[in-house]
Nucleic acid binder design. Structure first.
Length: 484
RNA sequence: GGCCCCUUCGUCUAGCGGUUAGGACAGCAGCCUCUCACGCUGUAGACGCGGGUUCGAUUCCCGCAGGGGUCACCA
């Protein structure tokens, strides 16, 4: 006689610390499909335990992007559910209670080591070519002594007391048993001095409390899974089934990153990719249908989804194939009327045009002039010969380096409006001893492909961060490839 | 560097001991066509290396190499 199977419950736990990431969508898709295929629940949990980097804007953007893709969740911060709250910052007291339980049972301990000491320990370990990790300083001290320090105001953290002997074993659905020596696992911080838990603690407690049956997440987590398993053991809980998906890759096979690839879901939307295309494409990553079909709906994907058909080589996120797929969707899955509507909504929206018109109206005389003058607001690529990107009296190598810095600076610029762009660019000139006019023309050419445009800062603001960064990156690439 | 994971055309992948190693994107050639694109047809292109196991290995095992991930009071 078999007991009734536990209902499948899976979750996606994005950290609201930046733009909605394509990797989040990829992992969400697989979780969603697994839940739906098995009649289970798909849960969205916001993992905002990093106070410094988390923002409500990012959280909202992530939810908007997932919704745009059509991945809806059964439980989450906005839709509620029986296992809430679904925002980790709202569960602080829960983590505190559980971590105290660990301290009481002797599975965790307080630590008052300073960042400086930690850095020193690390430095020494590196110098001696020893494995890096916490040296257990406070673990060896009397807890009453450590606690006294904390009473008197010294900031402290709680660390997991990992065993010094033996090994930790867990099963990964795709890879089978993975065994790691406990000496490889260091005393990870569970509870930070700001009263927030770390990912390790929060994810274990929440997965348990939320009844998560399968943890489907990226492969990057494999190496910290032993810590999680040890935590489950310390609590006396059974752990969920782990399923580590292969990571999306850049063309050079490294983990997909914004420096080498567009990764923001907002970029894909703005650049004109259809949500169903993107989802379909993500479904092609590490997965294949038994009948080899490559074009399918989300419903098809759910119906045919099987963890057994996930392949493990890290898939390169190949923009060329995505482009082809998007073309087919446009041609085959949209009527002309839908495309007209789509263009009006996406590319020629009243909102976008309203921003452009004030910039160009003084420079034009007839409606057709707008097309010639404002084309770069709508164009995909605005590349010109790379020598145009060179700065006066700056050698190429240095130029490339400077643009790298500049792009990074602009990527992080928030809000991305004319005022901020203005000061960011001017500050950049000061920092690197550049004349503003020497920098502004190449930048103008990178983002617009033209020498004559409306004022640069306003223009960049209207184009938006994603378009600017993509254009600057491809300009930079052209500059790198330029024959000397 | 330690530990862990991975390894079929350039890329996404099929394959689960015996196949002319299949499909898709990109490439190339041709057809279609006022051009381009679409579409269609064809073509080139892969089992990382070395040992085993086996009558037989792309497929199973071991080693090596290569790639990746991870070593935070970030997730």
């Amino acid at each position: 006689m078999t007991s009734a199977p536990t209902p499948v419950r899976v979750r996606i736990g994005p950290s609201p610390t930046g733009d909605p990431h394509v990797g989040t969508a990829y992992v969400a898709l697989f979780n969603y499909a697994f839940a739906k295929k098995n009649g289970g629940k798909f849960i969205l949990r916001i993992e905002d335990t990093d106070q410094k980097r988390s923002s409500p804007d990012s959280e909202q953007a992530i939810m908007n992007s997932l919704r745009w893709l059509g991945l809806s969740w059964d439980e989450g911060p906005d839709v509620g559910g029986s296992h809430g709250p679904y925002r980790q910052s709202e569960r602080l007291n829960i983590y505190r209670d559980y971590v105290n339980q660990l301290v009481e049972s002797g599975h965790a301990y307080w630590c008052t080591c300073t960042q400086e000491r930690l850095a020193e320990v690390r430095k020494r370990q590196l110098a001696l070519k020893q494995p890096t990790g916490y040296d257990g300083h406070c673990r060896e001290r009397s807890q009453t002594e450590v606690l006294a320090e904390i009473q008197s105001g010294t900031p402290g953290v709680i660390r997991l007391k990992t065993p010094h002997t033996g090994q930790t074993r867990f099963n990964d659905f795709f890879r089978g048993d993975i065994v790691i020596e406990n000496t490889e696992v260091d005393d990870q911080v569970l509870f930070k001095s700001d009263g927030f838990p770390t990912y390790h603690l929060a994810n274990v407690v929440d997965d348990r409390l939320m009844g998560i049956t399968h943890v489907i997440r990226g492969e990057e987590w494999i190496s910290s899974t032993p810590k999680h398993v040890l935590l489950y053991q310390a609590f006396g809980w059974q752990h969920p089934q782990f399923c580590h998906l292969p990571l999306l890759r850049n063309a050079d096979k490294s983990k997909v990153s914004k420096r080498k690839n567009p990764v923001s879901l907002e970029y894909f939307r703005e650049a004109g990719y259809l949500p169903d295309t993107l989802l379909n494409f993500l479904g092609l990553m590490a997965f294949s249908f038994e009948d080899a079909r490559e074009i399918f709906t989300l419903e098809d994907f759910v119906q045919n989804f099987k963890l057994e058909r996930v392949s493990l080589g890290g898939p390169v996120f190949d923009l060329q194939k995505l482009l082809w797929l998007n073309g087919r969707y446009l041609r085959e899955k949209r009527t002309d009327a839908q495309i007209v509507q789509y263009l009006q909504d996406q590319l020629f929206s009243t909102e976008y045009l309203s921003q452009i018109v004030p910039l160009v109206k003084e420079r034009v005389e007839k409606s057709e002039d707008f097309v010639a003058y404002a084309d770069f607001f709508f164009a995909g690529s605005v590349l010109v010969s790379p020598e145009n990107y060179l700065m006066k009296d700056v050698e190429r190598k240095r130029t490339i380096e400077l643009y790298e810095f500049l792009i990074e600076k602009l990527e992080a610029l928030r809000p991305f409006d004319a005022t901020h762009i203005d000061s960011a660019l001017r500050a950049f000139c000061l920092e690197h001893a550049l004349k503003s006019r020497d920098l502004f023309m190449p930048v103008r050419l990178m983002v617009t492909g033209k020498k004559a445009t409306p004022p640069l800062f306003e223009t960049m603001a209207v184009l938006g961060r994603e378009r600017c960064r993509t254009r600057m990156r491809s300009a930079l690439q052209a500059l790198r490839a330029m024959p000397v």
